[in-house]
């Protein structure tokens, strides 16, 4: 499972770029943006959450077809977020973990 891959510290960590995912069947994304924060609703999974600008951009990336971490990283960079920023990667991984937990994305 995607979450296991990200969290698994007992075994040698595979470079995260190898983890691939896709949006789960039947999930549609609704969003509303106010002053730098975005509220998201994922139908199917039925989850509502708040994300930052980065999170909103990442979700757009996933919807646009980014299915692994390097593609997502590049997408975020193209949309104005800093390059090779440790925090950025952590933030993306946090978001991906949440999405996997709620079965919004699943291993491809």
């Amino acid at each position: 499972m995607l979450v296991a891959v990200i969290q698994d510290a007992a075994q040698p960590i595979r470079p995260p770029t190898e983890a691939r995912w896709r949006l789960a069947n039947g999930v549609e994304v609704h969003s509303r943006r106010w002053a730098g924060e975005t509220a998201l609703y994922f139908s199917g999974a039925g989850e509502t959450m708040v994300v930052s600008e980065l999170g909103a951009t990442a979700v757009e990336g996933i919807l646009a077809g980014c299915s692994d971490l390097s593609a997502l990283d590049e997408w975020c960079r193209d949309h104005g977020f800093a390059v090779r920023n440790e925090d950025l990667l952590d933030d993306l991984l946090d978001l991906l973990e949440r999405l996997a937990d709620y079965e919004i994305i699943e291993p491809a």
Partner: peptide, 13 residues
């Protein structure tokens, strides 16, 4: 109805 379909998809997976 929506919830059942989601649940069945999950069980199927």
């Amino acid at each position: 109805d929506r919830a059942v379909r989601w649940e069945v998809a999950s069980i199927h997976d």
